[in-house]
Simulated assay, not measured.
Amino acid sequence: MQYESCDAKNRADYILANIDKDGIGIEIGPSHRPLAPKRMGYRTHVIDHMTRDDLKIKYENANVALENIEEVDFVWRGESYAELTQQSGYYDWIIASHVIEHVPDMIGFLTDCDEILKDEGVLSLAIPDSRFCFDHFRPVSSLGSVIDASLEGRKLNSPGMVAEFLLNAVKRGGTITWPRNNTNEFSFIHGIEGVRNAVKKVTEERAYIDVHVWCFTPHWFRLMIEDLYALGFINMREIDFFDPGTHEFYITLGSHGKGPGMSRLALLKRVNIEQLRADAAVQCSNE
């Protein structure tokens, strides 16, 4: 799926706010929309799931700028990033835009990133706000499910996860992301037969089907990161956070982070406000 972004300049400003252009970094899965492209002087190593030539074939009919697809330095096949890059404690920064919600093992992903970053390195994330994209009718992901997925060493998306994602994916006013003041009608993206076939494929063939595994609102993600750190599952904490009022939010993490600067209870109250606003938006659309 392609994402409709907020103003490109502002979006890049948020994501690059803590990126040192003179440092060396990784961009994970930039596809045809790199945020720190080599052609602009960034010392970027690209990780993606296929080569540049294969990405150009993938997107040749997608009405995108194929010339923006950069040379892929590391084709990821499921190994850790340290194994893939043959580096540890090496990179100054990592950018991952709309990546973390796709990974079956979120804790494993964060640990992989931390392993290849320097002590003062940063992980800059752009994450969809589930209230304002096709995940709208799905609940936020629980801390327990994130921990359990990691302890199980999950590599593939389960049939249940694929079913949940596909059954509930919606458009609003014909788009898969929308502004926060949108009150247009919802419509489902996938038909039941297609969902049934996808679940069968995962069940019988153990196929990997790319879905949003995890759903977050901005403060729910902030709270989850702090909880995972407090419980000893990750070594990263929040460095910076931006919620510009669009369909996505931005957060920078690192092992030298100090956390959100809010109590756990204060974060939970903000989560509650976010959910109440989402419920009110649905109510308005039904009146």
Score class of each variant (00 low, 15 high):
195 V>N: 07
221 F>R: 02
240 D>C: 11
175 T>P: 00
60 E>S: 09
23 G>V: 11
193 E>I: 03
178 W>L: 03
240 D>V: 00
281 A>H: 07
136 H>T: 13
14 Y>H: 15
34 P>R: 05
274 E>C: 06
207 A>F: 04
82 A>C: 11
4 E>T: 13
99 V>Q: 12
147 I>G: 06
88 S>H: 07
254 G>R: 01
44 T>A: 10
140 V>N: 03
55 L>N: 07
264 R>F: 09
89 G>K: 07
217 T>F: 03
81 Y>G: 10
188 F>P: 04
40 M>E: 15
283 Q>A: 13
169 A>N: 03
234 I>L: 10
218 P>F: 02
13 D>H: 13
281 A>W: 00
81 Y>M: 12
141 S>L: 04
33 R>Y: 12
125 L>S: 02
119 D>Q: 14
34 P>F: 05
195 V>R: 02
284 C>E: 10
230 A>N: 14
2 Q>M: 11
88 S>M: 03
91 Y>C: 05
155 K>D: 10
124 S>K: 02
34 P>M: 08
144 G>N: 14
172 R>M: 06
34 P>I: 06
161 M>Y: 08
281 A>S: 13
79 E>D: 06
22 D>F: 07
14 Y>S: 06
200 K>Y: 02
248 E>C: 09
130 S>I: 05
150 S>T: 08
245 G>S: 10
132 F>M: 04
174 G>Y: 07
236 M>G: 05
263 S>P: 02
180 R>N: 01
85 T>S: 03
33 R>A: 14
209 I>P: 02
54 D>S: 09
216 F>M: 03
104 P>V: 01
153 G>Y: 02
264 R>Q: 10
227 D>G: 04
225 I>E: 04
223 L>M: 11
72 V>Q: 08
87 Q>N: 05
267 L>P: 07
55 L>S: 02
266 A>Q: 13
75 V>F: 00
270 R>W: 01
81 Y>D: 04
133 C>I: 05
227 D>S: 15
11 R>W: 10
229 Y>S: 06
168 N>C: 01
264 R>E: 07
122 V>N: 07
110 L>S: 09
38 K>I: 01
225 I>D: 03
51 T>D: 10
17 A>P: 06
249 F>D: 12
228 L>N: 06
269 K>F: 06
269 K>S: 12
250 Y>V: 13
75 V>H: 01
235 N>L: 08
66 L>K: 08
9 K>D: 14
181 N>I: 00
199 V>C: 08
128 P>A: 09
43 R>K: 15
184 N>R: 08
23 G>C: 08
18 N>E: 14
286 N>K: 14
260 P>R: 11
111 T>Q: 15
173 G>K: 09
201 K>H: 01
